[in-house]
Amino acid sequence: MYRLDIAAFILLLMNFINKNKLFPLSRKELLLGFASGVFLALHFYFWIASLKYTSIASSVVLVSTNPFFVVVLSLILMKEKISPKVVIALIASFVGTVIITASDGNLLSEKIDKTSLFGDILAIIGAFSVSFYFIIGSKLRKNMDTNRYVTLVYTFAAIFITILAIFANEDIIHYSSRDFSFIFLLAIVPQLIGHTAFNWALKYLKATAVAITTLGEIIGSTVLAYIFFQQTIDLWQSIGILFIMSAIVISFRYGKV
């Protein structure tokens, strides 16, 4: 909630200071912007909740299945043609994801308990939600600049998730200054820089291609886990990373609108 609230506040403040015109917006743009914001909020709501019940690796890998949902939704909702080379990228990303998942603590051989299963389901719902976010974003970004789009969507997402948190009876006040410093960093780096970069790319790449690039999160989390938590990267993880990197390169090369 705070991640989105802070990001939205900063954007609104910057637009006010720079006297940028965010309006007028058509009714269709407002409705699609609201829908995109809701799905972004749901993505964070379910994905971050999943971290309480399942491992970081499982959560990140499962939430990164969003390209598969994006492809299906693009075919059904937008009748979008998928380049054969992007299909190859999807296959490569799927193989890489499976390899990393299997190698992460031998997940395939472990007995699945109900708690982990619940967390996995939450992560998958998070992936499904962000897929709609990308699909709607690709539609809006065709005629809307990045600043207007992210300000609109982040603001709607912030309002929606704040209402969710209040109705869920969450304690949203009693955090330490250290907690808030990390929350502030979440708003600045992953949200304002990371997600905004994805939204910028939606004007120039198909939603499918942009969704595939989010698989880089698996690589990033693996590398950072090694740096900060001394979690080593084994051979199979390295192979999986290479598959995913190949998928990202292919999606950028052949996934242009």
Rank of each mutant, 00 (worst) to 15 (best):
A207N: 02
Y226N: 15
I239E: 07
V223N: 09
A201G: 09
L205F: 06
T208R: 00
Q191H: 12
A211G: 07
G216T: 08
T232S: 15
A197H: 05
T222H: 10
E217A: 08
G194I: 09
I193A: 14
F228P: 10
G220D: 08
D234M: 03
W236N: 08
P190H: 01
I227M: 11
W236H: 10
A211R: 02
S221C: 10
Q237G: 10
P190R: 02
I239F: 13
A211L: 00
Q191V: 14
P190K: 02
V223C: 12
Q231F: 03
S238Q: 05
S238M: 13
E217N: 10
L224W: 14
T222P: 15
G220Q: 03
T213A: 09
K206D: 12
T196P: 07
I233A: 05
I193R: 05
Q230H: 12
A201N: 12
A225V: 08
L205E: 01
L224A: 15
G220E: 02
I218D: 03
W236V: 00
D234P: 02
T232E: 11
S238D: 09
Y204M: 02
L224R: 12
A207D: 06
K206G: 15
A225F: 11
I219M: 07
Q231P: 00
A225W: 07
S238E: 08
A201K: 04
T196R: 01
D234Y: 06
T196V: 13
T213L: 08
T222F: 09
Q231I: 08
I227Y: 11
F198R: 07
T208D: 02
I219F: 14
E217H: 11
T208W: 01
I218S: 05
A211T: 03
T222K: 14
F228H: 10
D234W: 07
Y204P: 00
W200C: 05
L215W: 04
G216M: 05
T196F: 01
S238T: 11
I227D: 14
Q230G: 13
A211F: 03
W200H: 14
V189R: 04
G216W: 03
